[in-house]
């Protein structure tokens, strides 16, 4: 994953203050890293393209990049790509929203109260041990084969990392920092707003990103279990009709959209986390 590069991007504005030169140097190093990382895949793709053009393979089962791009363009031109993408994004959005909301609430309650933690945490940990796909038959029986069961499955996938992240972040808030709040006589709500929320935010963002990643994983599983639209449907459709280019195009779409939503999440929270570039400094050093 490219999580490291994102952390660097957050860090850059804060570090720019000292002087321009280290930043430029750091930027160059980053681009060099990106270039090196891309070298392998690009070379493989170009090699395969040339091999197919030279007639060394018909590229039927492993389509060359040009044929994937063509399929992509066709799907986009007919509006199919947009239709399937929107269906999938809406499912992930609904599942992520519900799962993150439930995970945040339960995590906050379990992190805040030892009694609540003793009551719910063992049960949730036991449920977490169940492979989430195992819920699918039950969800279909309970919620039917349409949207509700798919959204529920995604929500389950998102719930656990968010729950664990929020609870852990609250439990690890430094008691010494809380005492600073007490010395300045912060009221309960002020303590939450001025001390607890900022202290918890970095861990919360990490857990949301983990949840979002699982959401994208589970939407594929959800769409495999019988959908008439969505990028997961494109995958199944491509397999059943023997169109590998369509499958790869859908995979590429998943990668691009998944990465984009993760980046949006990071960008939305970056202004609140400018102070926290400890990891980035370790990374560049």
């Amino acid at each position: 994953m490219t999580a490291d590069a994102d952390t660097l991007r957050i860090a850059a504005p804060a570090q720019a203050g000292a002087s321009g030169r280290p930043r430029r140097k750091e930027g160059r190093r980053r681009w060099r890293g990106v270039a090196l990382g891309l070298a392998g895949p690009v070379a493989a793709a170009a090699g395969w393209e040339l091999a197919v053009r030279a007639g060394l393979s018909d590229g039927r089962l492993v389509p060359p990049p040009s044929r994937i791009a063509e399929t992509f363009a066709d799907l986009a031109a007919t509006g199919e790509l947009a239709r399937h993408t929107v269906a999938t994004v809406l499912r992930v959005a609904a599942g992520f929203g519900l799962g993150a909301l439930a995970g945040t609430l339960m995590g906050a309650i379990a992190g805040h109260s030892g009694l609540a933690r003793s009551l719910v945490d063992p049960t949730l940990q036991a449920l977490r041990a169940i492979p989430s796909i195992a819920w699918v038959p039950l969800f279909i029986l309970w919620l039917g084969i349409f949207e509700a069961s798919k959204v529920a499955l995604i929500a389950v996938g998102v719930f656990f990392p968010v729950y664990l992240g929020v609870m852990g972040a609250i439990l690890s808030v430094d008691r010494k920092i809380v005492e600073v709040g007490r010395i300045f006589r912060l009221s309960g709500p002020a303590m939450v707003r001025r001390i607890l929320l900022p202290a918890v935010l970095p861990g919360y963002v990490v857990s949301l990103r983990a949840g979002l990643g699982l959401g994208w994983m589970f939407v594929v599983a959800a769409e495999f279990m019988g959908a008439s639209e969505g990028l997961g449907y494109l995958l199944v459709d491509g397999q059943q009709l023997g169109k590998p280019a369509e499958i790869v195009a859908a995979i590429v779409a998943f990668a691009v959209i998944g990465k984009t939503t993760d980046w949006l999440l990071v960008a939305a929270t970056a202004p609140f986390l400018r102070w926290e570039d400890v990891v980035a400094q370790g990374e560049t050093g």
Partner: peptide, 20 residues
């Protein structure tokens, strides 16, 4: 009986809030 507005405190560690 509780922290008082006219009593200030400096701890052994600075205890600055890292996000401010």
């Amino acid at each position: 009986t509780a922290p008082h507005e006219r009593i200030g405190m400096v701890f052994q560690e600075p205890r600055l809030l890292p996000w401010l």
